[in-house]
Amino acid sequence: MENKIVLSVNGLSVAFKMYGKGFARKELRVISNLNINVRKGEIIAVAGSSGSGKSLLAHAILGILPGNAVVSGEINYCGTPLTEPRLRKLRGKEIALVPQSVEYLDPLMKVGKQVSADKAAVKAAFERYKLADSAANLFPFQLSGGMMRRVLCATAVVGNAKLIIADEPTPGMSKDLAGRAMKHFRDLADAGAAVILITHDIDLALGYADRIAVFYAGTTVETALASDFTDDSLLRHPYTKALWRAMPGNGFRPTAGTQPYAGSLPEGCLFAPRCDKKTQECTYGIIEPREVRNGEVCCRYAS
């Protein structure tokens, strides 16, 4: 397998300018110092709880964040910075987004047109996802939940995308259908695409992804091989271990506490308030990512 890095995100931070009362201005940091990369032919699953910044990462890559977002850090596509002029040529062609929900479809426009302007491409994509041709002429509200998911997934295969970002493509699908959707992404990766697969369902993703990036409070705490998720000693970060232990079948033991809110992030390690390994060292500075056993981890003590 080729090892070409299609996308690399280094030290990405995203904050929203918020206007409070009067002239008070505040920056709400929702992504901090985030790193991720994906290679040709690879699926990297992005896992993390709600609000950990998964969708915002997708939007940042595509350059479609709202106007009040302040972005810093590096996003490289095929080795060169992903600037707005470049994005203008790539969006919807080389880089495809599978949006998170039906809210991303114009309620007044037929779905076919929203998958692509190219009718033949829509037809082919719909066939691939076992959707009738006639479904292209339906309005979003006329689709069932399952059909809607498949329509959204179809947006990934209309072009010849080299980078596919799928934002939670499977919720609401039956186990069987979800597996099939995953298989489609696997096929796309095997055919040479780089796939970022955002998901809540680590269990499902493990069967299809090559690596898993674990998000916590807007940063990547660990990037592990899918095969590491067989025993918690193979995992590197306390949060990932906790996540693994909380999964059904591995003890189902949840960790106390919740992810910190963007307005009140702690200094130092963002996981520190909930970590049982924390020391004084963990409460200041930026915890830089380190290579540990073929993976990457942001923790002072991981080994």
Partner: peptide, 14 residues
Amino acid sequence: RSDFILFARARGLS
């Protein structure tokens, strides 16, 4: 500001 405009932009619409 709606999500469907976001997605339309992600599809490359000017």
